[in-house]
């Protein structure tokens, strides 16, 4: 009960935040946090819960961004273009995502990386130019709208993952992660659950891509296909805590803030620091930053009793 109240007040606070802070800079940061948290959760469903570590999530993110951009610049309003982007991403999952489950374990990881590179090179070749916002679209462009959109999608995603983690479906996904053969042996259709996980994951990635395409004014068409969009959500999820509801959100906050902190003074050094933190997390904190809280709480409890 207490936690529900906390969450409700947090959501309310975030809804009124733009009215209170009135700083475009902070609003930008909040949008980025929402975007990364959404994308990272999208990876988390497939990689954290279902254990299928994808190194090619940018493909679906990019597909969402590309579709959104084309429709939006073509005159479709953003609230229609956004779900269309998600749909395009899902269709792409049907075309290339589900067949990639023929690859198991680490083969899936390197195979999806190869798919992401194929997508990147193809888009680079087909659309080498820069995407500009047209004047008509500029009227629709407002940071406040983007913030509410990004926040809405983010909250919906977190809620969906929360529901998933408490459902039978979530349990099935975890069983696939823990031991695919054992899950198969007790009658779980592992392929079906992997497909379900990927469908949810790609739809969310498509939404995130649409928000990126809405938020970024001018960028190269292939920018959302860059490998970084595959790697960042993975790093964020692992550092925050893969396979948890809170982890990717915590990870996204740390990621965006670190990036801001170092971008001004040291440029690219945030990737370096994140890489090191990532290795340390994989080695010593399999549950990520969220895991630390768990350890502390456990110690607290045992100290009291």
């Amino acid at each position: 009960m207490k936690s529900k109240l906390g969450i409700a007040s947090f959501v309310l606070l975030m809804i009124f935040a733009p009215l209170l802070i009135k700083s475009e800079y902070l609003l930008n940061l909040l949008i980025l946090i929402c975007l990364y948290a959404t994308l990272s959760h999208s990876w988390n469903i497939l990689g954290g819960y279902c254990g299928q570590i994808s190194l090619g999530h940018a493909t679906f993110f990019g597909a969402g961004a590309l579709t959104f951009r084309y429709l939006w610049l073509g005159g479709v309003s953003y609230y229609l273009a956004l779900p269309a982007g998600a749909l395009a991403s899902l269709i792409l999952a049907f075309a290339i995502g589900f067949p990639s489950f023929k690859m198991k374990g680490h083969y899936f990881s390197i195979g999806t990386l190869a798919l992401a590179m194929i997508a990147l090179i193809t888009v680079q070749n087909l659309l080498p130019g820069v995407s500009f916002i047209t004047e008509a679209c500029l009227k629709e462009y407002s940071l406040l709208t983007i913030y509410y959109l990004a926040f809405g999608v983010g909250v919906a995603t977190v809620a969906a993952v929360y529901a998933l983690s408490r459902s039978k479906l979530g349990l099935a996904l975890v069983s696939v992660r823990e031991d695919e053969e054992a899950a198969e042996a007790i009658g779980i259709n592992t392929f079906k659950y992997k497909v379900v996980a990927m469908s949810i994951s790609t739809v969310i990635a498509g939404f995130a891509g649409g928000i990126f395409a809405f938020y970024c004014g001018t960028y190269y068409h292939y920018a959302p296909f860059e490998l970084g969009w595959s790697f960042d959500p993975l790093l964020i999820a692992f550092i925050g805590g893969a396979g948890t509801v809170v982890g990717p959100v915590v990870g996204a906050v740390v990621f965006v803030l670190l990036k801001e902190l170092f971008a001004a003074s040291l440029g690219q050094v945030n990737v370096l620091i994140f890489g090191i933190v990532f290795i340390v997390t994989v080695l010593f904190l399999p549950k990520g930053l969220v895991g630390i809280a768990g350890i502390v709480r456990k110690k607290d409890r045992s100290a009291r009793t």
């Binding site: 570590i53 190194l55 374990g105 680490h106 990881s109 790697f231 692992f238 440029g267 690219q268 050094v269 990737v271 370096l272 994140f274 890489g275 090191i276 990532f278 290795i279 994989v282 080695l283």
Partner: peptide, 25 residues
Amino acid sequence: ETEKLKNSLLISFGILLICSNAATM
């Protein structure tokens, strides 16, 4: 076996990111 593979993949992936970015810097 599978944990070994997964963790070595993740750790070396971190090294890959660190090295290429450090070299660029």
